[in-house]
Design a protein around this nucleic acid. Structure first.
Lengths: 232, 232, 232, 232
DNA sequence: TATGAATGAGATTTCATTCAT
DNA sequence: CATGAATGAAATCTCATTCAT
């Protein structure tokens, strides 16, 4: 028993090592120039070994994306209160985004990976979101960032129900749009050469954009204080 | 004389042919898988010939991008009236986007090219926008989509001055954000396999997003009718 | 008659123009990077036109080589006296080489072209030298630098006969060797980036080498003053 | 342990295989027409594999050059005696050249490669020769044929000191000249179509040239028997 | 399980040369 | 006679992926 366990654990550790090194490389040199060779070198493994842990480069990137997504969702859910209004929840969502961005820009810059994975937020998203809920989700099939989408959608719905968000909003659509916008900004940042990235400037830009979204989504006559996000 | 003219025209036509075929290919298979060989095959020319018309692959892509950008800016400016309020102008901008999108989806889907050209909207944008204004802009140096950015920035400024847009907006930043969002959506669409692209659905999504932006940007107490974009 | 003549003359002038421009380009950027396009541009002609005057790039280069060779031979022969001893003639040959090198480095640097033309000094050279003498020499078939070879061979023979050069020398062989060495040095110079070529240094090196050759070729007990070449 | 060793050996063998095949190709068709594809075909490997063993085509060629150079220097040094006079040493040098040429013409014909590697013997050679002496020489930075140059220079110096070579000689310069001449001859041979190369004739030519050099370099009144190289 | 080695399939780019006008 | 335009054939190099050991 102990042996099997150890093996499993070691295997999991290797996986993590690979993912970790990949993230670092992406942060340093960007997704486009990330090669399997680079990862192998960084992890002090052979390229062939990478394929024991990940089916393909795309699968590896997808996994990183999922991890980022999961950790973000967990982070946000920890902060949400059952009695938060929809608008308040949305506010917390963006605030968390900004907060995490400050703490570990990695997670968000990694969002840029989505670009290099053949995937689109559009269409059949709603359908699948529902369809997947019942199934055991295999890593391979789960839509990347699906859980982030679900989270945002739930928040929007809450807000529509409690009247703090514009009544006409369709949660799925808006969730998609919001996430799209967030990742677009991050993606844009990722293009900058590593050293040119000015965290403060980017944060400011993100904040402005999120405030813009809050204003756009909030119902008339809502609590105005919730339309502003904390600087720095 | 006539001969020279014809030659020039034919040359221009070939250029257009190459650009056209490239666009088609991008629309069908996406930018990432576009190769010079593919273009040559599609245009029934040799790869070498492509290099007679374009210095490099990047130059070719940049040209497509520029054309799209230019034609959009022209389209919008044609519709703007000197006495439009900022909000009205912004409304027209998005309406034009939607209109053109219906007419020739190519132009916008092609926006996705930006992704493959090494450029970021962030930083020094404002500076350069100003700096470029006086100079004769050579194609080589002009920032891609710079004229779209300038157009949006001018509109925002107008709105801030006439009180129809929120007074705190910084035109350069917002222009960047708005364009970023628009291209992000388009970019997202471009990932879909060609046949999966449902123009109507996408248009709807674009519309929703633009309305969201309008609401987010408009000043309190503005003309509510300008916050809605025409369906279809 | 006048018309035909003018035509012929004009045609010849164009040929010269092309050769002239080619030389300039070679001097500036070296043979390896010389392209037909460059020549066409420099001569303000189209690439196709070049082919009206020269069968191929190789033929063009061969012609330049021939011209250099001819002009050098003429230069030397002008200076030779019927009663010069063989050693004195050889001395004049090298002195001329150095002199011309100072005057118009072109001619010699152009020697470097031989490298890029598929030709060898070795073997059947003697044979052909004789064989060609009687025939009308077509440009295409004449060995490049053949007349330089012949000149040197004649000088060596003279020296062997009059006892000023070592009696064992075989004129054809030595001519080949000597020319080989001279072109090798020149060739070596041609590799240097244009601006790095220090004419004085090179001249010095050439002089040392030629003196070495003179010492090696002279008969014992010859006039020692003829073993030294003038500095500068 | 045995396994690692075998692997290393096999890898080294493959490297050798590639180098060997490259040499053969060069010998058969000359350096200018040598392509990575040809080498790959000859070695029955894929082009990509070549890049596992050599960073670039230039690196591959440089390696061949280095090998030739090293093996020649080793061959000569083995034959030199501490008490050889400078002239005797020089005599041995050329005799070795001729000897090795008879044994394996490849090694020397390959000298022709130098032509295709961007390098010139002129200028800063002396300087660098000295500068390098102290450092650990990395392959990347070492000048091609530098060790041959050094060897010749040492011999010349010895001869100048012991009075068997002309007292005015500057070792660095002469070494350069001598090597230049040797490689020029070889280079000239390499131009001949493979089957036209008559080893005996070439050897004879080399011998004549080397004797010429010996006569040119020797001090007056030296041992005349050292001015003749063995036939065949 | 791990990996060194190999590779297929491409990518972009260059250039001497040809040909219709 | 002149040429703009076109091109075939190469060249070098990259990289995700596979496979024998």
């Amino acid at each position: 028993m102990g042996i099997t366990e150890r093996k499993t654990r070691e295997k999991e550790e290797r996986r993590e090592l690979i993912l970790e090194k990949s993230k670092t490389l992406i942060l340093e040199h960007g997704v486009p120039s990330l090669s399997m060779q680079d990862i192998a070198d960084a992890a002090e493994l052979s390229k062939a070994t990478l394929y024991l842990y990940f089916e393909s480069k795309e699968a590896l990137l997808a996994e990183i994306l999922d991890e980022s997504s999961d950790s973000f969702v967990a982070y946000v859910e920890e902060r949400l209160q059952p009695d938060d209004s929809g608008l308040a929840a949305l506010h917390k969502l963006w605030a968390s985004y900004l907060g995490l961005f400050g703490e570990s820009s990695d997670i968000f810059i990694l969002t840029g990976i989505r670009n290099f994975i053949n995937s689109s937020f559009y269409l059949d998203t709603d359908v699948d979101a529902g369809a997947n809920e019942g199934k055991a989700e295999t890593n391979a099939q789960r839509k990347p960032l699906q859980n982030m989408l679900d989270l945002i959608a739930r928040i929007i719905e809450r807000g529509v129900r409690d009247g703090t968000l514009a009544p006409t909003l369709e949660s799925g659509k808006i969730a998609r749009t919001a996430l799209l916008i967030a990742t677009a900004i991050v993606d844009n940042v990722a293009r900058l050469p590593h050293k040119a990235r000015d965290t403060r400037l980017i944060r400011e830009e993100l904040r402005d954009t999120f405030e813009l979204l809050l204003r756009g989504l909030a119902a008339d006559g809502c609590d105005k204080t919730l339309l502003t996000l904390p600087p720095e």
